[in-house]
Computed example of a mutant assay.
Amino acid sequence: MSIDQESQMSDAELDDFLGSHETGVLSLARDDEPYSIPISYGYDATARTFYMRLVSTPDSEKRAFLASEPSARLVVYDGTETAYQSVVATGHLEEVSPDELTVEHIEQYGQAKRPLFEIWADSKADLDIELYEFEPETLSGRQTVLDLEGGGDEE
Rank of each mutant, 00 (worst) to 15 (best):
D15E: 08
L18N: 06
G19T: 10
S20H: 13
S20T: 12
H21P: 01
E22M: 11
V25F: 05
L26K: 03
S27Y: 02
A29I: 14
D31R: 09
D32G: 14
I37A: 13
I37K: 01
I39W: 09
S40A: 15
A45S: 15
A47L: 12
A47W: 03
M52F: 05
R53I: 14
D59K: 12
S60G: 14
E61P: 00
E61G: 01
S68G: 10
S68K: 11
S71P: 00
R73M: 11
A83K: 10
Q85C: 06
V87N: 02
G91H: 04
G91T: 07
H92D: 11
L93D: 09
L93E: 10
E94G: 03
E94F: 00
S97L: 03
S97K: 03
E100C: 02
T102G: 03
V103Q: 13
E104S: 12
Q108R: 12
Y109G: 00
Q111D: 07
A112V: 02
K113I: 02
K113D: 09
F117Y: 14
E118M: 04
D126R: 12
L127E: 02
Y132T: 05
E133P: 03
P136N: 04
L139Q: 03
L139G: 04
S140G: 11
G141H: 01
R142Y: 00
Q143H: 08
L146S: 03
L148I: 06
